[in-house]
């Protein structure tokens, strides 16, 4: 009896907190905005993702001994969904920086988590390290578009906070562990990234007609036109080869 009361109290608290959060976040609370959802599929047999031999750094070998690392260039889920596809609105004319949160790009077990980090222009992100070995973070933008950098993060170093000025898909790598490869995909406006089943949802899209662009590494893109109505979800599904 007492237990049930506690449960009710906790649940109602949670609901209240969530409502508060929703009310405080204008973007979400704007009832007039819709969203775009969909699924990204990979056509054909999923390519074999080779295992990574990390033997040069015994720390990495130990960190991945339970769960061996493999390459992440094309991650296809069991249902054929394609992971790590970035979806965003081509030719977005609203505020360039829609997302205000500060995403984290972590270096964990000598791999990047996440492998693909979508970002708005000027959106701050944090690079952190969970490893007990030094990494250098070396994004390689086109020098005519963005200013690159190359900075190390030894164990215990504070997070590196950065942002990108212009839209671009930027490959990032660690030179100390050359297999560590990831992407910063810088776009304008709302974006989403497909999960392990290939599903995605772009939130906060005002009503209107849009071209949704899907990007997959290294430089594959597809587009689709959708119309978003107030409070509704438009769908756009893609399939990559």
């Amino acid at each position: 009896m007492k237990k049930a009361q506690n449960l009710v109290a906790i649940v109602s608290m949670l609901v209240l907190v969530c409502c508060g959060a929703l009310l405080l976040n204008q973007k979400v609370s704007a009832a007039g905005e819709g969203k775009i959802t969909g699924n990204v599929k990979f056509e054909g047999a999923a390519p074999h993702m080779r295992g990574i031999d990390m033997s040069k750094d015994p720390y990495c070998v130990k960190a991945t001994s339970a769960n061996p690392a493999h390459m992440e260039t094309t991650l296809v889920g069991s249902s054929g969904g394609l992971e790590n596809v970035v979806l965003y609105i081509d030719g977005w004319s609203g505020d360039a920086t829609v997302e205000k949160n500060v995403p984290i790009f972590d270096q964990k077990n000598c791999m990047y988590v996440p492998h693909v980090l979508p970002l708005d222009v000027n959106q701050t992100f944090k690079v952190t390290t969970s490893d007990n070995t030094a990494h250098n973070i070396h994004p390689l933008p086109n020098p005519m578009v963005n200013v690159g950098w190359n900075q190390s993060q030894p164990p215990g170093a504070p997070p590196i906070e950065k942002s990108w000025k212009n839209p671009e898909a930027i490959r990032v790598q660690c030179n100390i562990h050359p297999w560590m490869q990831g992407w910063f995909v810088v776009v304008k406006g709302p974006y989403a990234v497909s999960d392990s089943s290939g599903n995605y949802t772009i939130n906060n899209v005002p009503p209107g007609s849009y071209t949704v662009k899907a990007w997959h590494e290294p430089d594959q893109t597809q587009t689709q036109k959708v119309t978003v109505s107030a409070g509704q979800a438009a769908t756009a599904s893609f399939s990559f080869k």
Partner: peptide, 24 residues
């Protein structure tokens, strides 16, 4: 190697973030 050298970040913020020496 893991010792933070107090004040080192004053010399270079990127070279020694949080007083931790980077390899470079």
């Amino acid at each position: 190697a893991s010792l933070a050298i107090p004040g080192l970040h004053l010399l270079s913020k990127t070279g020694a973030p949080g007083d931790v020496m980077t390899p470079e």
